[in-house]
């Protein structure tokens, strides 16, 4: 259990570093897929099976394929090797390390974070899976947000079609 956690979080973090470091956009996209796979495995380790599968299907499947299409459509070259301004690197590194330090200091002070994983009671039978529970919540408590998300998807679809037109009238 613990070993798997370290394995998959290392996978997720390595993939993330790969996205930042790779000059070739296609390699960056594939590092991103690795990172999302590691993240999905962490979700499944947290007993969130539905969102783990959704993460793989939507992110690694749909979104990354879209990215790869655009990379190939635009024929994006490797970023040429050139010296970046040192100020840039130092600034970004400072902000990032500062953020990590902030996370560590907050986590080390809170008592909430020291909780170990509480056990779940195993229930058998229909209507007890997490898919069923989430579906029931979506169509009872959260029915209004679901409608709004539907409208949002429609707006996004229309917007993409309009944006992709050659000439805007």
């Amino acid at each position: 259990m613990t070993f798997l956690f370290y394995l998959f979080s290392a996978l997720a973090l390595m993939g993330g570093i790969g996205v930042v470091v790779n000059r070739n956009p296609v390699s960056a996209a594939f590092s991103m897929v690795i990172s999302f796979l590691g993240l999905a495995a962490l979700f499944i380790q947290l007993d969130a099976f539905l969102v783990g599968i959704l993460q793989i299907l939507v992110y690694a499947g749909a979104i990354m394929v879209l990215f790869l299409f655009i990379i190939m459509l635009l024929d994006v070259r490797e970023e040429e090797k050139r010296r970046r301004p040192l100020v840039n690197i130092i600034g970004a590194g400072g902000v990032t390390l500062g953020f990590i330090a902030l996370v560590i200091s907050v986590l080390s002070r809170s008592d909430v974070g020291k909780a170990t994983i509480p056990a779940l009671t195993e229930v058998e039978g229909p209507g007890t899976s997490d898919v069923h529970q989430i579906g029931e919540l979506l169509f009872s408590t959260y029915w209004f947000p679901v409608q709004i998300v539907g409208v949002l998807l429609l707006v996004a679809t229309v917007g993409v079609v309009v944006l992709s037109k050659k000439e805007l009238k």
Partner: peptide, 9 residues
Amino acid sequence: GVLFAIGLA
């Protein structure tokens, strides 16, 4: 948090 920081970088 670290993954978020990597994305930020």
